[in-house]
Simulated assay, not measured.
Amino acid sequence: MLKKIGLLVKERRQDLHMSQVELAKGICTQTTISTLENNGCFSKWELIPEIIKRLDIDVKEIENKSLYRYGERNLRQVELCLLTHKFSKALKLLSKIKKENLDSKDLLARFYCDLGFSQLFMDGSLDDVTTSFTTAIYKHTSKNNQMVISWSFLGMAIAYQRLRLQKRSLEYFKLAISKLNISLRNIHKKEDLWVNTQLALAVVVFGFEISEHQLVQKECDLVMNILRCNYSYYCLKDFYYVKGISLKAENKEEAAEKLFMQSNGLCCLRSSNNVQKLLKINQYDVVKQ
């Protein structure tokens, strides 16, 4: 247990760019912190509550230490910013992460994927954007992390669409769907469902923007079925709506209207304007109901 606490303290302190002296101030000596972090002969257990309080460590984190490797917390904050469209803040947080200290391929892949999206929506060089996504996909991502690969392929699709290279964009869009579907089939936790749902929503909205309506409708059906099977109504309203505007774009007014009614019927369960936000990001004029 002591070794686990010491390692967690060290990682969190490094995440916060805090020195041992700063952490020790008013609690103990720098030597005491060093002893704790390096699994030395530590006996001052009464200091542990103060140390973890200063580092804002929850007791549950100690029980599940594997979640807190260097950069993990920062990347989660970055990804939350990206999902809530706070791209400037995401880029700022990324600049504080020392990628040379990221100790796994998956963390590095997430870093470059997050960097690609931050650059993409902060009007960075599209060459830099595609380089970031390519690095995430081909240099660092493990085969097991289909979700990061899918996000990266989606980023490539958006970048090539902005470069007006429609064929390349469509190619990467289809790859994003393929990897997304693999990820959807391997959902084991509610947290996985939430993140995959966010990815799926971004994918189908982009598919609508490039008029790939058959793919959009098929993917919406798949995701809605998964959400219903998991008794989760998170974003279900949004998928009804995206499928509806996709059908309307094909002049299938009656079918679209039914979906709009179903979408509106879920307002009491899930009030959201995620679709409009995603469409606005790419400056697309949504089809009016």
Rank of each mutant, 00 (worst) to 15 (best):
K3H: 12
I5C: 11
G6R: 04
R12Q: 13
D15N: 15
L16W: 00
H17Q: 12
S19F: 09
V21R: 14
V21E: 15
K25T: 13
T29M: 09
T32K: 12
T35E: 10
L36G: 05
E37N: 00
N39D: 15
C41K: 15
K44A: 15
E46S: 07
P49V: 11
P49T: 05
P49L: 08
E50R: 09
E50P: 01
I51H: 06
K53A: 14
R54A: 08
R54P: 02
D58N: 13
E63P: 02
S66H: 15
L67C: 12
R69G: 14
G71K: 04
E72C: 14
N74R: 12
N74I: 05
R76M: 13
R76S: 15
S88R: 01
A90L: 06
A90E: 03
L91I: 00
L91R: 02
L91E: 02
K92S: 07
L94E: 03
S95I: 00
S95N: 15
S95L: 01
S104P: 10
L108D: 05
F111L: 08
C113Q: 07
L115V: 02
Q119Y: 05
S125F: 06
T131C: 08
T131G: 03
T135P: 00
T135F: 03
Y138D: 14
Y138P: 01
T141V: 15
N145C: 06
Q146A: 12
I149Q: 08
I149V: 04
W151C: 01
W151Y: 14
F153Q: 07
F153G: 00
I158R: 03
I158K: 03
I158H: 02
R162V: 03
L163R: 13
L163F: 00
L165E: 08
K167E: 15
R168L: 14
R168I: 11
R168Y: 11
R168G: 10
S169E: 04
L170I: 15
E171M: 10
F173Y: 15
N181V: 10
R185Y: 12
R185N: 15
I187R: 04
I187A: 11
L193F: 11
W194D: 13
W194K: 13
W194I: 12
T197E: 06
L201T: 07
V203C: 01
H213V: 12
V216P: 05
D221A: 13
D221P: 00
D221M: 10
L222K: 14
V223N: 04
N225Y: 05
I226G: 05
L227K: 08
N230H: 14
Y234C: 07
Y234S: 04
Y241S: 04
V242H: 00
V242L: 06
I245S: 01
K248S: 09
K248M: 13
K248W: 08
A249K: 10
E250V: 01
E250F: 02
N251L: 07
K252L: 14
E253F: 06
E254S: 11
E254K: 00
A255F: 11
K258F: 13
L259A: 00
S263Y: 06
S263C: 09
S263Q: 07
G265C: 10
C267L: 10
C268S: 12
S272F: 07
N274F: 12
V275D: 05
Q276I: 03
Q276M: 12
L279H: 04
I281F: 02
D285C: 08
V286L: 10
V287F: 15
Q289S: 07
